Amino acid sequence: MNNRRRRIYEGKAKVLYEGPEPGTLIQHFKDDATAFNAQKHERFEGKGVLNNRISEYIFSRLNEIGVPTHFIRRLNMREQLIREVEIIPLEVVVRNVVAGSLGTRLGLEEGMQLPRSIIEFYYKADKLNDPMVTEEHITAFGWAAPQEIDEMMALALRINDFLSGLFLGIGIRLVDFKVEFGRIYDPDGQVRIVLADEISPDCCRLWDIETKDRLDKDRFRRDMGGLLEAYSEVARRLGILVDNPAPKPSGPVLVQSK
Rank of each mutant, 00 (worst) to 15 (best):
I87Y: 07
R105Y: 10
D161M: 00
I118E: 13
L166A: 03
R219W: 11
V242Y: 07
L16G: 07
S257F: 10
D32Y: 01
K30I: 04
V175T: 08
G165K: 12
L195D: 03
I88S: 06
F141Q: 09
Y57V: 04
E120Q: 10
A140F: 13
D216Y: 10
A144G: 02
N244C: 14
I8D: 03
V93M: 13
F121E: 02
P131S: 09
P146N: 11
G182C: 08
T69M: 11
L206D: 00
E84S: 08
P22K: 12
I54N: 06
Q190V: 14
R237I: 09
M132V: 13
M152A: 02
P22A: 13
V179L: 07
G46V: 09
F71D: 00
I209D: 08
G169Q: 12
F121L: 11
A230S: 13
E148S: 13
V67Y: 02
V133E: 06
N51W: 08
E10A: 11
G66M: 02
F29R: 05
G169Y: 00
G225N: 01
G182I: 05
D31I: 04
V133W: 00
S101D: 12
L128G: 03
V85G: 03
G19Y: 10
E136K: 11
I58E: 04
N3Y: 12
Y123W: 15
P89M: 05
M152R: 01
Y57M: 04
D130L: 08
R73D: 09
L174Y: 10
L238M: 08
V175Y: 03
R183E: 01
M112G: 12
F121D: 02
R5W: 11
G226S: 08
I199R: 01
F71S: 08
F36E: 05
A33Y: 00
T139V: 15
Y17L: 13
T211P: 07
